[in-house]
Nucleic acid binder design. Sequence first.
DNA 1: ACCACAAATGAAAATGATTTTCATTTCCAT
DNA 2: ATGGAAATGAAAATCATTTTCATTTGTGGT
Lengths: 121, 121
Amino acid sequence: MTRSNPRVLSTLERAGGFASAQEIYRLMQREGESIGLTTVYRALQSLVNDKIVDVLRREDGEAIYRLCGEAHHHHLVCKGCGDTVEIEGGAIEKWAKMMAEEHGFREVGHTAEIFGLCAKC
Amino acid sequence: MTRSNPRVLSTLERAGGFASAQEIYRLMQREGESIGLTTVYRALQSLVNDKIVDVLRREDGEAIYRLCGEAHHHHLVCKGCGDTVEIEGGAIEKWAKMMAEEHGFREVGHTAEIFGLCAKC
DNA sequence: ACCACAAATGAAAATGATTTTCATTTCCAT
DNA sequence: ATGGAAATGAAAATCATTTTCATTTGTGGT
């Protein structure tokens, strides 16, 4: 798996390092790249295997892929218009680390999202 | 929604308080209970609304329903065995409120989960 | 009891993400 | 070039979940 991997990876980067397979596929289509959905899925799987990307789950169960190592951030999402603000989660990082230690967990990751209605909605 | 809710709830209890909709449905079938899959889903949704059960995601994205205590809490989930520990999220609540105010959001809620490998795995 | 009407039920179809199948294309080493 | 292995992608299969809609059930009024 070689030709597609870099294209998918760079699309994921351009998408802000945080997107679902379907979103990446649609983005590539829109930009005129010729690629199949299957290949996007396979490229993502192989990137996950190589620990280049991370996979989490949206609230609805859809898998979202995230660049590893990248300074990760959290989201403030508007339930009305879908607008999203990237926010810092310093407090969360500490909290997660503390809780994990306290319960003997290793290799921990975390998700944290805030949702509500933005000023406009 | 009245006749089915208690039956679904009691099945979830009997299943150890931790099961997917499909599993609950299959369990009820096996025990000779007459119920439709749709109704199981609807009962679970309504139990979630009433905050009687909690919903998380398996690694494969399937929703799992779980009896939970009253107080709002978060989860520390083992990627290996699925073991779950309920944890306090005091720091998170403050963080969420602060971030929301800062960006003019109202009626905010949040999700936060930590996942990793537990001591046994 | 009886009747009407709203709520609840469930079978079947629809949806949407993800995976599988398989025929075709691309890459490389010979 | 040439053969074979790896990669690709269209279409079909899978699986959880949701929607649709016709039927059943429960309830209140008479």
